[in-house]
Design a binder for these strands. Structure first.
Length: 829
RNA sequence: GCCGGAGUGGCGGAAUGGUAGACGCAGGGGACUUAAAAUCCCCUUCCCGCAAGGGAGUGCUGGUUCGAGUCCAGCCUUCGGCACCA
């Protein structure tokens, strides 16, 4: 053949890899080091995009590298196949979600195969198939038995456009993560998973995730949002009820001048009854309720409130405090009620000023004097020293917090408490295309779990999908009505389905035992692969999937299904693919279709560019000119090989003596240095752009030698060695051309399973080195000297260099610093 | 406001305390060609200089060091997360 022709090469090797099951892993091999390379599984939306190409190119490069290093590598893909787009497409096109999804999977699988990603296709899974989702149901039932799954009435986020509730993690800036429409808060009875039971462990575990990016760790810490403080009960004058507040600043409690309740606070309705304020309170609550979260956030710039007509008693001082309802108090933060200390909290201060409420300072700067309230222009929010606080006067804030919460506990009106921003995970979705929640509602028995033997609860295929009228499963003939497994009376099935983030919580455990029909997986088969060595995906999952899956792992541990605490050792978050200054997206019209790139330049070029153009963690600017550059490189490689080929010695020829001389030796050294660089970069450094540059350098150096008509035998040997090396070290980046080169060099297939080369230490040392001579830290000379030269000889060499000598002339040498084979720094007095 | 990341040529980026700008793109020049494409070779941080050479230079200001893009302190800009969080 002649000329670089990816259209011929690529399908040929893809077929051979498949035919010989090159990437199949039958079972874990205890004699080998194992490596689990995992990429976040894609949603089968229709076609793959450049973000996928980048994700899988990174993963495949590392997987191929580790495989060639002799590791047993597990590299698998599957499909996150449940979700709303399938249902919406069905409503629009009258095509069943299942058919739509499976068709998309077929399309995208073929696209991945055209990219030559080395997956074990025998382990592929799709989460929408009953053989997978039945285990979602089984796991849910185990959680139900343990109280981790529970049903409760709570305020939740409702997306009217998607027609379903959303978990907190799925609300981004008060909008739906999927459709970007504003969400509203509404009360629902729903299924939850008790992720808050694991809040502290999830937080503590972050410290151990040393191979996760700092920003992901920071995002998870923020998300979990631990805050330490106390709950304090305030009794209500003339009532048996009391109001519980949460505060991190119990040291300021003598400065509390009113209480404020969220408009959703359950006591609010009854408090005002019979007072002159009753109507005002009712109007205020009505005006605030039912607004979108975004609107409430916007209005809250202006603080609004209304007095309830009732008073609470400060348990420390016995003081009467007016109880208000206020828009800035959030129902789902703390207890939904606060003690307001205007002198020491900016929000309380603003509210007090607006409504003429009392402001009483009780903390002063430790070195300062108490300030009169009238002179304050804002709150003093730092810690300090207490005054006007009865027996606590003179204590510093931190000590006061300890002693005052001890008093609260002793007297029974408060407890030290830790609260978390993290809320329980609401998993009910009022949609069709998800896992049916396996419970039955019985008029006599209440909530009854579906017996394991009856799993899976199959998703009916005849549900009417109109996007209207609530849960489609309630309208599916034959689904809703059933009988109670406990008492046998007529009963109704749960019609909500599970959040699709449930599916992705444990799919990568299933990859290790994909056909198991007795259990989600058998840990004895799975454990050799865990924890996952390297998990690659986008940053957008930092506080969604990556928190959920950590939680799920801990739950499975507590269920006795696994013996690990954390599922992923090393996390890698790739950057976005950018075009013309914006993330590629259909709506912006700046999408580059991977298939077009593969048709035009080939999979190798497309992959090579996506790795070469930017470090993998940074955003990548897609540039057609840059793609051309990578294509030219592969073309140049092939042309150079074709030209050199007739002169190359056969496979396995020993180096002739002349291979140790002149250009041949120089090329051999470059080859071995390149091996070392590429090996280091693909290792823990995870630098994927620089090894490509190193291979380009090697080719650039060898091109003139390889282009000589009649090569001498030493050079021919060195050139052959360079090509053999390139075939191997290029394999992680451009696997098809690497295979073709390998075969044409006379080796049996496959370079994909060939051994990674090792650098010959003897060829990493030079007999001449470039010694940089500095005067006072500035470079003044560059001398080529014999390797291993002593400091004295180096100094002599430097003196005999005319330029350096001129700088030294007439100056006293105060000091010299010598780094052998690198640098001589002469410090003048 | 709190937490975290990032600032290097015209551009993407390289440099694991020791020659700043590897590699690629873009640009300029040349070879080959009747011509073009493709390919190959050379130049390409900025300023002064015909050149030899010199000076400046990695967001800013300091510090540590013989030596700092790299380490430390304080800022600035920018991106991301959290946020009336009690």
């Amino acid at each position: 053949m002649s000329g670089y022709d990816p259209r011929t090469i690529e399908p040929k090797w893809q077929a051979r890899w498949a035919e010989h099951n090159v990437f199949r892993v039958a079972q874990a091999d205890a004699s080998k080091r194992r490596f689990y390379a995992l990429e976040m599984l894609p949603y089968p939306s229709g076609r793959i995009h450049m973000g996928h190409v980048r994700n899988y190119s990174i993963g495949d490069a590392i997987a191929r590298f580790r495989r060639m290093q002799g590791d047993q590598v597990l590299h698998v893909i599957g499909w996150d196949a449940f979700g709303l787009p399938a249902e919406n497409a069905a409503i629009q096109n009258r095509e069943e979600p299942r058919a739509w999804t499976l068709r998309n999977i077929d399309t995208m699988r073929a696209q991945l195969q055209r990219l030559g990603v080395g997956y074990d296709w025998d382990r592929e899974i799709a989460t929408c198939l009953p053989e997978y989702y039945r285990w979602n149901q089984w796991l849910f039932l185990r959680m139900l038995e343990r109280g981790i799954a529970f049903r409760a009435r709570r305020h939740l986020n409702w997306c009217a456009s998607c027609g379903t509730v959303l978990a907190n993690e799925q609300v981004v800036s008060s909008r739906c993560w999927r459709c970007d429409n504003p969400v509203v808060r509404r009360e629902f009875e729903q299924w939850f998973l008790k992720i808050t039971d694991y809040a502290q462990e999830l937080l503590d575990g972050i410290d151990g995730l040393s191979e996760w990016p700092e920003r992901v760790r920071a995002m998870q810490r923020n998300w979990i949002g631990r805050s330490e403080g106390a709950k304090v009960l305030f009794s209500i004058e003339g009532s048996e009820a009391s109001i519980e507040v949460f505060t991190t600043r119990i040291d300021t409690i003598h400065g509390a001048t009113y209480l404020a309740l969220a408009v959703e606070h359950p006591l609010l309705g009854e408090l005002a009854v019979g007072t002159p304020q009753e109507k005002a309170v009712r109007d205020f609550v009505a005006a605030q309720a039912g607004r979108s979260v975004e609107e409430r956030f916007a209005d809250a710039a202006e603080k609004l409130g209304v007095f309830t007509g009732r008073f609470a008693i400060n348990p420390y001082s016995g003081e009467k405090l007016p109880i208000w309802a206020a828009n800035f108090v959030l129902h789902d933060v703390g207890t939904g009620a606060i003690m307001s200390v205007p002198a020491h909290d900016e929000r309380d201060f603003a509210f007090a000023k607006k409504y003429g409420l009392l402001i009483r300072p009780v903390i002063r700067e430790t070195d300062g004097a108490p300030l009169p309230a009238e002179t304050l222009v804002g709150a003093f929010t730092e810690d300090g020293t207490l005054h006007a606080s009865g027996s606590y006067d003179g204590l510093d804030s931190a000590t006061a917090r300890l002693r005052m919460s001890a008093e609260a506990e002793a007297r029974g009106f408060g407890t030290r408490t830790i609260t978390f921003r993290l809320k329980d995970w609401g998993i009910s979705r009022q949609r069709y295309w998800g896992t049916p929640i396996p419970v039955i509602h019985c008029g006599s028995c209440g909530i009854v779990p579906v017996p394991d033997a009856d799993l899976p609860v199959l998703l009916p295929d005849n549900a009417p999908l109109t996007g209207e009228g609530g849960s489609p499963l309630a309208q599916a003939p034959g689904f809703l009505e059933t009988s109670c497994p406990r008492c046998g009376k007529p009963a109704r099935r749960e019609t909500d389905t599970m959040d699709t983030f449930v599916d992705s919580c444990w799919y990568y455990f299933r990859y290790c035992d994909p056909a198991n029909d007795q259990a989600p997986f058998d840990w004895t088969k799975v454990s050799p692969w865990f924890p996952v060595d390297l998990y690659i995906g986008g940053i957008e999952h930092a506080t969604m999937h990556l928190i959920y899956t950590r939680f799920w792992t801990k739950v499975m541990r507590d269920l006795g299904l696994v013996t690990i605490d954390e599922p992923v050792t090393s996390l890698f978050t790739q950057g976005m693919v950018i075009k013309d200054g914006a993330k590629m997206s259909k709506s912006k019209g700046n999408v580059v279709d991977p298939d077009h790139m593969v048709e035009r330049y080939g999979a190798d070029t497309t992959r090579l560019f996506s790795l070469f153009a930017a470090p993998p963690e940074r955003d990548l600017d897609w540039s057609e000119a840059g793609v051309e550059g990578c294509f030219r490189f592969l073309g140049r490689l092939w042309r150079t090989f074709e030209k050199a080929r007739p002169s190359l010695p056969p496979v396995g020829s020993p180096p002739p003596p002349s291979a140790g001389l002149g250009d041949a030796l120089a090329l051999r050294r470059k080859t071995h240095h390149t091996i070392r660089r590429v090996t280091d970069d693909l290792g823990p450094r995870m630098h994927l752009n620089t090894p490509v540059a190193a291979i380009m350098e090697l080719l650039n150096l060898m091109t003139p030698l390889a282009s000589v008509e009649k090569m001498r035998d030493g050079e021919a040997f060195a050139v052959r060695e360079a090509f053999e090396t390139i075939a191997r070290i290029l394999c992680p980046f451009a696997p098809h051309v690497a295979e073709e080169l390998w075969e044409n060099l006379g080796f049996p297939p496959f370079v994909a399973t060939a051994a990674w080369p090792s650098a010959d230490a003897a060829l990493l040392v030079h007999d001449e080195v470039l010694l940089v001579v500095q005067i006072n830290g500035k470079v003044r000379g560059k001398l080529t000297v014999a390797a291993g030269m002593s400091e004295a000889d180096a100094m002599a060499a430097a003196r005999s260099d005319g330029k350096v000598a001129a700088y030294l002339d007439g100056h006293k040498i105060r000091k010299t610093v010598f780094v052998p084979d690198r640098l001589l720094n002469v410090v003048l007095g």
